[in-house]
Amino acid sequence: MPDARRILALDHNKRNLALLAEFLAKAGHTVTAANSLPEMDAALQGDPPVDLALIDLAGFDSRVWERCDRLRQRHIPFLVISPQHRVDLERASLSRGAKGMLVKPLSAKSLLGLVQSLLPA
């Protein structure tokens, strides 16, 4: 197995989080699952650093944008996941440095491809 990349997954829905973590782990990644913003903060303190973050916006208020800003400051690439396609959310995400916005339900195959392309070589 190639050297495992650390992926941070933030999701308010526990089942979503578990499925996402299970799926990425099966693809050979090390996943840190965060169910809340404080959990995400703690994960970002950890060592070794996170290589990529997946942020599911559902269930979070505007404080989630502060975390996005923090990820950009640290040069951690991230994808935003949204329950529906909304132009305002997409614009806000991209302006905060998101590599893109994905709309649920995600296609497992394209998610994996996207994750691979965003992970630093």
């Binding site: 999701d11 089942r15 979503n16 499925l19 559902a58 649920k104 339900p105 296609s107 497992a108």
Partner: peptide, 12 residues
């Protein structure tokens, strides 16, 4: 309430 929406049921 083990519902999810991250992936479609067909994937899960």
């Amino acid at each position: 309430s083990e519902s999810y929406d991250i992936f479609s049921p067909s994937e899960v």
